[in-house]
Design a binder for these strands. Structure first.
Lengths: 115, 115
DNA sequence: GTCACACTTTCCTATATGGGTATATGTTTG
DNA sequence: CAAACATATACCCATATAGGAAAGTGTGAC
């Protein structure tokens, strides 16, 4: 089995750098697919594919506007990620302390090794 | 080109459900690889591989303890994700409003279609 | 040293992807 | 309806998994 389908999981959808870039870009407002491609310097089909994935996980919406299709951000899907991440905030400092201890340990080992 | 290597990107590392489970499990304290495998019902080599990925992106640390190797959480790497996500918090409510408008629009279309 | 235990790595496989290129689809305009 | 424009899809390829099975490595015990 390979990795889970990006189309069904927000975590996978935002694992791709270019898709993250698209989301960031859309914070400044909706825009047509072509503009997204141009502004992020990716091919038109490339942008279209990424937008499709983002659409399928619900992170963007699209609406027709004449010949164009305007894409807009719907950040609500990122909430689940935020909540998951939130469960770790309390461990940031703690693990920092743990790292400190780790560094101290390394220093000790180094000292005893060089003797 | 395929997706970026999981070993070099925290976003990719946490894109895999089982790896997220491991991180959550490790919040309750360090434990040997075998225990991780048992508690999460994954094969021992499987757990080992996932732990390796997490280690390489710095989300876990390991230390030898006799025959065992104890893995512990280092959540600091999740901060970059948290920060990125944080840039979207202000859009949650806003996009909710946008969705409302979207729904209204759908209703309108539906009405005009059924006429 | 040898054995057992706890992991890690190697191999192999089926499957997803991301990217490029070419082509198809949908919409407005003349 | 034909032409033009904006996007989406289909195809093809190279690569990166995740997983299972089997073999390899490191460490404590006898």
């Amino acid at each position: 089995m390979a990795r889970a389908a990006t189309t069904s999981d927000v975590f996978n959808a935002i694992a791709e750098p270019q898709r993250r870039d698209i989301l960031v870009l859309l914070r400044t407002g909706e825009r047509p697919a072509t503009t997204v491609a141009e502004e992020l310097e990716m091919s038109q089909p490339g942008a279209s594919k990424h937008l499709r994935v983002l659409r399928e996980v619900g992170l963007v919406h699209d609406r027709r506007a004449g010949k164009q299709r305007l894409y807009s951000l719907d950040a609500r899907g990122l909430r689940s990620v935020s909540e998951w991440i939130g469960g770790f905030e309390q461990f940031w400092n703690e693990s920092f302390d743990r790292l400190e201890a780790y560094v101290q340990e390394l220093k000790k080992e180094d000292r005893s090794t060089s003797r």
